[in-house]
Every structure is written in structure tokens, then in C-alpha cells.
Design a protein around this nucleic acid. Sequence first.
DNA 1: CTGTATCCACGCTGATACTG
DNA 2: CAGTATCAGCGTGGATACAG
Lengths: 124, 124
Amino acid sequence: MSGLEGNPYDPNCPTRTILDRIGDRWTVLVVGTLGHGPARFSQLASAVGGVSSKMLTQTLRALERDGLVQRTVYAEVPPRVEYALTDIGQTMREPLSALEHWAKSYVPEVLSAREAYDTHHGVK
Amino acid sequence: MSGLEGNPYDPNCPTRTILDRIGDRWTVLVVGTLGHGPARFSQLASAVGGVSSKMLTQTLRALERDGLVQRTVYAEVPPRVEYALTDIGQTMREPLSALEHWAKSYVPEVLSAREAYDTHHGVK
DNA sequence: CTGTATCCACGCTGATACTG
DNA sequence: CAGTATCAGCGTGGATACAG
């Protein structure tokens, strides 16, 4: 019964695990970019936009550790490193797309609900 | 083009908006619980488990502000407050379920990928 | 019962500088 | 090119106490 309910700290709760991963600021953007095909570190950096190399590395490492992204280093000079979604990584795009689709459909309403709320209560 | 790509700080990016909301620790649990039907504050508290009243209130207020949850106060003694998903709130359950379903299917693999990774690299 | 008010510690994140 | 190292700031969330 560890789905939309359950202890949020339970490391065995699958939903919490994935939520913790996609809840950060860059993971979804990186997965979305890699969905178009493999990309190099610098390509990802400019495609995502505004991400520091530290954060990009950190995001990529987490994804790699989870088996969602494949990291390939080519022994060249200058160094070339390519990242690609694994098969599992690919499957994650679907629920993410569902979320994106929902967002595009309803967030405008959410935003206007916020305005209305802020108008009737104190806007800070 | 503000979907799985785009500026993560853009307040107009729908995906970012929803990700910011469900990325926290309690929102998904609360929505999941309310999916079974309306519930009172104390019912939510025990159903979710481990949440402080501060955090539960904060989560509920955010959901209410976004028009996803309806808050109804009954002028009784002792006070009774009931929370329920709005129509829009209900629609959000679908993409959340998709995510949950994905999680249940693939997180076991993710977890073993982590173990494998930690074995080959330094485990802390 | 249903919250509100404080205080505080932790972790995430960005900026900056440096390296193979 | 593709990172790593270090540091500092800020927000998020928990504990606790109190209130309508």
C-alpha cells in the first residue's frame, strides 16, 4: 500500500523514490532533453540553460546511479562524454509526459486560482 | 516550448509549476488520501502519518490557493473543517497515478542499479 | 479540534576558482 | 571539454509552545 499514501520517509516507497528524483530543479529538464537523443555535457548545459556544471554533473550522476542514464566516455583529446537515456530511462518519459500534458492543460486555471486567492486574502 | 525543457525559474512554465507543487514531501500524500473522498484535518493527519500540523496546514493552504482543494468550515463546537478535491484536483490524480504505476514497475530496478553503482564506486 | 507563532538546524543550490 | 573543490546564503521543514 505504498503508493500515493504511506510514510514519506520510507526508502522502500517507490513513489517517494521517484518523487525525490524528479522533484529537484534539473532532472526533468535533463531527461526531457535526452529524450531527443544522446547529448554531450556541453550540449546539455546549453540546452537546459542556466545550470551550473556542478548541478549538471550532480544531476547526471544521480541519473546514472539510478540506471536511467548511460554515460559514455570517449578517450579522445579533447575529452568527449556522451549521455543517453537507458531503456528504463526511456520508459520514464511517458509518465513525465502525462504530467506535462496535465500541466499545460490545467496550470492556467491554477494560476488564476492563485490570483483570486491572493486577491481575497492578503497579497504579500 | 516550455515543457520538459525550458527555464526552470520561469514562473510561466506549467511543468515547473506543478513540479514545484508535487515535489515537496506531503502534497502527493494528501492528494492521494483525498482521492478516496473528503476528509477532516485530523483524519488527514493520521492517514498521512508523521506530518506536523504546521506542514499539513501549509500543504493544504497551497493546494487550496491553487484551486485543487476545497476547504469547508462548519461553524460548530468543536470546530470541524473538511477538505475535498475540487474537480481540477480530481483530474490531477491521473498523471499522479501514471507516475505511481511507473514507480511501482521500475523502482525495484532503480534500487538495484543504485546498489550496483555503489558497489563499484565508493559506498559511503 | 484546528490551527498559528517561533526558533533552529540541515540541505540544497549557486558562485567562484581550479584541474586533467 | 568536462568536470571537481570549497564556501556561503537561503529556504524548507521539524520541534515546540501557544490559541480560538
